[in-house]
Simulated assay, not measured.
Amino acid sequence: MDGLSLLDTDYNDTYLDERFYFEDNIDAFGITMAILYPLVCILGLAGNSLVIVAILKLDKMSSSTTVYIFNLALADGLFMVGLPFIASQNFQNRWVFGDIACKVVMVLDGINQFTSVFCLTVMSIDRYMALADPLRFARWRTPRCAKIVSAVLWLFSLLTILPMALHFSADKGLCIPELVSDSWWLGILSYTFVMGFALPFTMMTASYTALLLTLRLQRLRRSTPNQESHRLERQVTRMVVAVVVVFGVCWLPFYTFNFCSLHQSGLVLTFARAFECMVLLSYSWSCANPILYACLSDTFRRHFRTLLCPMVKSSPSMQCNTERYDLNDTGDATLPA
């Protein structure tokens, strides 16, 4: 679980005393974070909104791939909604929105975080089925099936996060979990790490590794060299490396700092600020997905160009016929999931 839950501390009284002991003067770090938080929020909302509009207007969720990408963008966009609340608490050193709002924000924050990760994981499996053996898995890759799977992911995220999110309270001035015991908190950290990072990361890595091995084997089996298959393999390799690296870079430091907080006998200012940077880094992952679409997918580049440059439509010679761009084609192999 991200944001307010693991944002600041190991949640003991020592931390709370030190947190409020820190000077309230606005220094360079505070100003920098005050700029970065809204910047990440705006970029995340704008980028994911663009993906959603592109899919609804130009693709109309005609494939399983775009159904999953739509739900990923929706979860990532809604994930950004909780960022202003976190920024406010960090900047003011207190939660000013009330106890009910604390619980609601944490529930929504957790649902969107886990749904985003789960969607990315399912998309890695979908990519394997689409490129390894499309005919064999065709009945599992229909838009209807993808919508059912996506609905299950949202429900599973709610059930996964609800018991923990309801333990949050703003009674002590910060929106933090009510600490039952050290072992309870260690269990929560381990649970979120496994469900939110370790298991999805392992499944993504396994799916993409199997996909790359399958594509290479298919290419080697051909009697004559095929430039198109070799190009496809290179594109998928770039996509795999980008997805796995970005996911790991954005989330592993966050969970690492959470476990390190268990061994902090007294939280120092440097650790608290580094922790805050890790939280912001984890949120920036939701901004990275639309950028990956634009950089790695020819299809989405064309969709984005159509939406952002409407004047192109006025020139028949430059007009982009979006109907012929099917996200199930080989260009879809470069999608970041």
Rank of each mutant, 00 (worst) to 15 (best):
M1P: 07
L212I: 04
P177A: 02
W95V: 14
S88I: 10
Q235R: 12
F156M: 09
Q113D: 08
D326Y: 06
V312E: 15
D109M: 15
L36H: 06
D109K: 15
E233A: 03
W95E: 15
T65P: 01
Y191A: 00
K313Y: 08
V40Y: 12
S183E: 08
S62W: 13
V40P: 10
A333Q: 05
P290H: 11
I125S: 02
M61F: 05
T306E: 13
Q89S: 11
L36V: 10
F156E: 04
D298M: 10
Q227G: 11
L131Q: 04
V107R: 08
C260T: 13
L162S: 12
C277P: 00
V67T: 10
M33Q: 04
G187P: 10
G77F: 10
F259Q: 02
V117T: 09
L72V: 11
S169H: 07
L50P: 09
N289W: 13
L16E: 15
A132K: 09
Q319K: 12
V268N: 11
M80C: 07
L213Y: 07
T256H: 11
T192G: 13
D8I: 14
A274R: 03
C260P: 02
L162N: 14
R305A: 10
P253A: 03
S88D: 13
F300Q: 08
S150C: 14
F257Y: 15
Q227E: 15
L158Y: 02
R231G: 02
A333V: 03
L158P: 08
F259Y: 04
S315N: 12
F197Y: 15
S116M: 05
D2A: 06
A170M: 06
G173Q: 07
E323N: 05
M33A: 03
L158E: 11
S157F: 06
R301P: 01
R136K: 09
V149A: 12
P38K: 11
S314P: 13
S5E: 05
L56R: 14
R234N: 10
L36A: 10
R222D: 06
M203R: 03
V194R: 13
T209W: 01
